[in-house]
Structure formats: C-alpha cells, structure tokens
Design a protein around this nucleic acid. Sequence first.
DNA 1: AAAAAAATAGCCCTTACGGGCTATAACAAT
DNA 2: ATTGTTATAGCCCGTAAGGGCTATTTTTTT
Lengths: 204, 204
Amino acid sequence: MITVSIVEDHDQYRDLLYQVINDNPEFQILDSFSSAEEALKSIIINPPDIAIIDIKLKSLSGIELIQRIKSKIPQTLFLMCTAYQNNENVFTALKAGASGYIVKGSSAEEIQSAVKELYNGGAPMSPYIAKKVINLLHGKEDQNNYDLTEREIEVLSHLSKGLLYKEIADLLGISLNTVKNHCKNIYKRLHVQNRVEALNKFNA
Amino acid sequence: MITVSIVEDHDQYRDLLYQVINDNPEFQILDSFSSAEEALKSIIINPPDIAIIDIKLKSLSGIELIQRIKSKIPQTLFLMCTAYQNNENVFTALKAGASGYIVKGSSAEEIQSAVKELYNGGAPMSPYIAKKVINLLHGKEDQNNYDLTEREIEVLSHLSKGLLYKEIADLLGISLNTVKNHCKNIYKRLHVQNRVEALNKFNA
DNA sequence: AAAAAAATAGCCCTTACGGGCTATAACAAT
DNA sequence: ATTGTTATAGCCCGTAAGGGCTATTTTTTT
C-alpha cells in the first residue's frame, strides 16, 4: 500500500487527484491540503510515501515547500504537478529535491503509473528534462537555457502537437496575432525560421 | 566466428570499438565505416553477422541507415551505439529493426558480451527500454508501420530537420512538386494535416 | 504480359505561416 | 521616476504549405 498526500490549491484539480488516487486500491490518501502553509504544519507529522505537490502554490511555492520539508521527511518522494511540460520550474523543482512530475491534463492511468514508477525508484519525466538533469550530473552547467518565458514555452508545447495558430489561440483564449507574436519571439530567441527547427533546438 | 562491421563517425570511438572487437578471437571485423553513406554502399555487398551502428550519424542517422538496409541483409543483426541510455531514439531504433544497444562508456567486456548476447538471440538493453518494447507488444501490434516507402521516409527525415520543400527538392535532386506529392502521400497515409503531426505520429 | 505500386512532375487553389512594423497595459527592476 | 520585460493585439506583406487533380515513366509484383 502506497500512501499519498496532495498539496494543490485549485479545488477542482485537487479533487480530481484525490479521486484518481483513491480509485486505485494500491494507494491510500493520507492528507489533501489546499495550501503550502497547511501542508507545512501537518505533512511532517504524518509523512506519506509520495507527496504530489503543485509547483505553483500561492504565497509559498511548491519548490519552496519541498526545500523546507525534504530534510525532515527524507523517506517521502515528491511528485510535482505542473501545467506545462518542459517548464524551467520543473527543472528547479528537481534540483530542489523532487523526483518526477506529472502534467496537468494527464490521464488517470498516467497519474497512477507515475506514482507507482516513482515508488519503484523511477523518475517520470520528459526526455528534455531528463537530459538537463543528466547534464547537471555530468557537471555541465545548465546550458540550453534559451530564456523563453513561461508563456512562450506553453505556446511551443502546443506547436509541438502540430496545432495551428488559430487552435492555440482558442486554447489559450488569446488572439491569433498574439500567438503569432509569441512564435516570432520564440524563433528570434532560438535563431530559427520555423516551428520544426524551434522544436528541434529546444528539445535538443 | 562472429563477423562484425562498425559504423561510427567519431574516429576515437570507432577505433576503440575496432580494438575491443579485434581483441577477441571469437570476433572478426569485416569493415569499419566512418559514415552512413560509406556503409550504405558496402555493407550490403559484404554483410556481417553483427553491425554496430552509432545512433547519431551525420546527414543520415543510424536509424535511417537501418531502415534502408535491413530488408536487404535480413541475416545481419543491428547493435546500436548511443551516448545516453533510455533515450527515446534507442526505442525508435529498436522499432526500426535494431535488436539491442550498447552505451558509450561501456567496458570492453560489456561490449563483447553484448555482441555475443545478440548473436545468440538475446537483446541487450536496459529494463526501461525492455519494458517499452514489451508494452508495444502487449499493446497495439507495431502500430508504427504505416507502410511509408523508403523515399517517403527519406523525405520525412528531411522534414524533421525543418527544411523547406525547396531545400529538400534540391537535396534529393527532384522537383518541388515531387516533394510536395511525397508529403501529401505521407500525410494521407498517416492521417494527419501537417509535418509536425506527421513527425509525432511516425516517431511515436 | 498485365497489373499494381512507386517516383516523377505538372496545374490550380486556398490558407497558414513567418517577418516587419507599431502600440498599450501590467508589472518588475533600477 | 524611468527603464525594461511580458503579454496582449493589431496591420501589411510575401511566400511556404497543403490539398485536389491528372499524367508519365520506371519498377515490382502477379
């Protein structure tokens, strides 16, 4: 039986996580917190095997939360929860002590298998992030940082699915022109001329 | 006596492989190529039992090389050579027809035993990759075979670099219209509408 | 020999893409 | 206070991309 605690301030997604974890008899929910402050008080007293923590919590971020409690509950593994894959914050979280992450929008099965993979010593993450971690281990400084903004990375992640500008605009609730502008800025910063080159460079 | 050919563009590592293989009286080097193009010409005429191929070769990748020659020399087994274990490319290579891989940095003994294991019907790889392969077997039956022609795969590989139709046409010495036609056929067969979707589907 | 598949190439058409601009509001840094 | 950054949004423009056709030659399969 794998015990799990959740720290997520969005009520809707916290409930979803709760159900997904609770649905599987291999897992048992210990706690479900809606803020880092709440978690800070209780999670040390009642440490789970796996703590699923939203990377973007109000006031105290998920990364800071980990930094504070990790040394006090070394047996607990941290699974970050992030809106965007390949976000720089994910990398920071891993450096801070997280062991893997799930992306919001993952299926129930993906979430459950991420928890299991983590518990079994694995590290669920994208190849891009994995390589950055390996580079770090090999002593290479965190190169490959093209200083894309979070929004730009988000747009890029949609480009990587083959979506049209129009589709991305609707998805993000912004205008087509804004999407185009983000792309232009991305291409400029990566010194490329089109989406495929951008994806190759960013995911290198 | 197991015959071995090597395709590796890094001089240093190619020499290392040569020595490691040559040192063992059970093996015999047939050829040692420094590019996929060289290998393409000669390896079909003089096929080895085992071909050790670097996964990242210039211009034509090791994966593409396998796709091109595998059907012509079905008795040859392919051992990929990769910098990082568990790379997605390794998985792609296995789907393309490789039977195992070694990691750069392996010891002489590890390399030799990988070759022997391969020759004896084994498949040297990490548990992670092995699991992906098993998942593929348990899941959908090699869904990756979209029956693309060699030429189409070649065009797709250039698309994956972010090249323009015009550039691909010049590279292959054919007209822009022909490149467009190949792409249309690729998209039709993969049931997608653009190059990024095609690449995602083909490399899935 | 006949049929099928693959590679070649052209035409027409619409639209998505990429690049050059400017501009504003919100916010952060200096 | 001023500067810089980010996200937003618009405009104009040329071209690349993608889709629907037909057609010829070569290669492969039956």
